[in-house]
Design a protein around this nucleic acid. Structure first.
Lengths: 237, 237
DNA sequence: TGGACTTTGTGAACAAGTGCACAAGTCGGT
DNA sequence: ACCGACTTGTGCACTTGTTCACAAAGTCCA
């Protein structure tokens, strides 16, 4: 059993769900559970069992029929796939409200990421202490990134600065960017970019809100995304 | 021209993009542009023209061939669809790092939402002033929500509290929830839920990072999500 | 050993989303 | 009034994602 995953291509949709399974499995491990069925895992991750099985099957056949999946083993498998076997140093650019909150957010460290540097363009902020770190100058960005081997960056600047910062980051060698600025940022091929836009999320909710008002006769049960039955009308980010 | 959109069902994927077009159109309006082509709009929103046209066509036929779309008119159409013609009052539950940052984030107000109340379970925080608002007690949640007609809530509590808070919110009459707590929250049918999970986003980036390391021969150009050419390898949240 | 029961892994049907390509309008100039 | 340039709206083919449903594989107990 369990042949290597070989050159199996993992679908995009599955990749976005692996972190969910990972989190669910961590919970299991904490409670000392040794094995989980796809059904239980689905429940913990807010998903359905069939999807869980198919997703996991892309990693290889690591379950045991009649029993389920071995929690520790699967954790190892997923963290390997997600590249969480090492801690990734991360730089946050833009130390405003959001940047500071992210810097102090301790959910990162627990999950394979370590905020290693804070950078801001405002000279007044440079030198300021935030948590354990001192804010550094945007001018030193390239140096900071290179010296500490940073490959992942978070942009938390105002919108107008985001594109320029992204350019600097890419030039400095960053390969993955998480953008919180409410604007479109484009990066060259080979660089990954994801965005989180708070206003956008609220607007999407607002749409369904408004829709509900218009009781012009939609199928009442159809919730926003990927909802089923009473379980998890949760929308994938 | 321009028949009413009738009972046209707008696809989920399109809904998540409407806020992007909205933002792009606001930019156009600011610059005084009167009309935009689908191509220009695509560029501003980080999308491709065909998708823009198809998306907009779900709202009705509001473009003019040979010319493009009238900016002001389309803005009105989209804001109507997204329910942004009114300002929605929002409550933030959980006034930690993130909650405070969100409370002070002024990107909301500009886009149809108004943080109207801050609530926390910690008695030490209740009464504290954050920006213009005083933190209120979780015990008063139902009252706060009811009195101010709040229908949208943001959960920014630690993970363990999230599910309980969601329950309270729903009981109080909230119909849409944006969850920042890194845990699965489930809500009854009829309530919309979206989540934003920072660690998850980073882990997804990490996957592609790791993948790049394994130069075992993937098609080099395939970036994370929806990327094309040099333009916008941006991933939809 | 055998038989009842559980749970995986996956083929195949279905559903949703994307992108191409082009007919059908619209405009401005002559 | 006509022509050429431009841009929308959409049918269609294709890709991606989801769900069902069931054989295969394993456990447990007598």
């Amino acid at each position: 059993m369990a042949d290597r995953p070989a050159g199996r291509r993992i679908p995009e949709a599955t990749v976005t769900r692996l972190p969910l399974y990972y989190r669910a499995l961590l919970e299991c491990a904490d409670r000392g559970t040794e094995t989980v069925s796809s059904e239980r895992l689905a429940e913990l991750a807010g998903m359905n069992a069939a999807k869980v099985r198919k997703d996991l099957s892309y990693l290889g056949s690591y379950g045991t029929r009649g029993v389920g999946y071995e929690v520790e083993f699967l954790l190892g498998r997923i963290s390997g796939e997600l590249g969480l076997t090492q801690d990734w140093p991360v730089v946050i650019v833009g130390v405003g409200n959001l940047g500071q909150a992210l810097a102090n957010y301790h959910g990162f460290g627990a999950r394979g990421f370590r905020v290693e540097a804070l950078v801001d363009a405002d000279p007044a902020k440079v030198g300021e202490q935030v948590g354990e770190l001192a804010v550094e100058s945007l001018d030193d960005l390239a140096e900071v990134v290179a010296e500490r081997g940073i490959r992942i960056a978070i942009i938390a600047t105002p919108a107008p600065a985001a594109q320029e910062v992204a350019g600097l980051l890419v030039a400095a060698g960053v390969a993955s960017i998480l953008n919180f600025a409410p604007t479109v940022v484009s990066v060259p091929d080979g660089v990954s970019l994801r965005k989180v836009d708070l206003a956008t999320e609220l607007q999407i909710l607002s749409f369904y809100q408004a829709e509900q008002g218009n009781w012009s006769g939609r199928k009442g049960s159809k919730r926003a995304p990927g909802s089923s039955s009473p379980v998890i009308p949760e929308v994938a980010s």
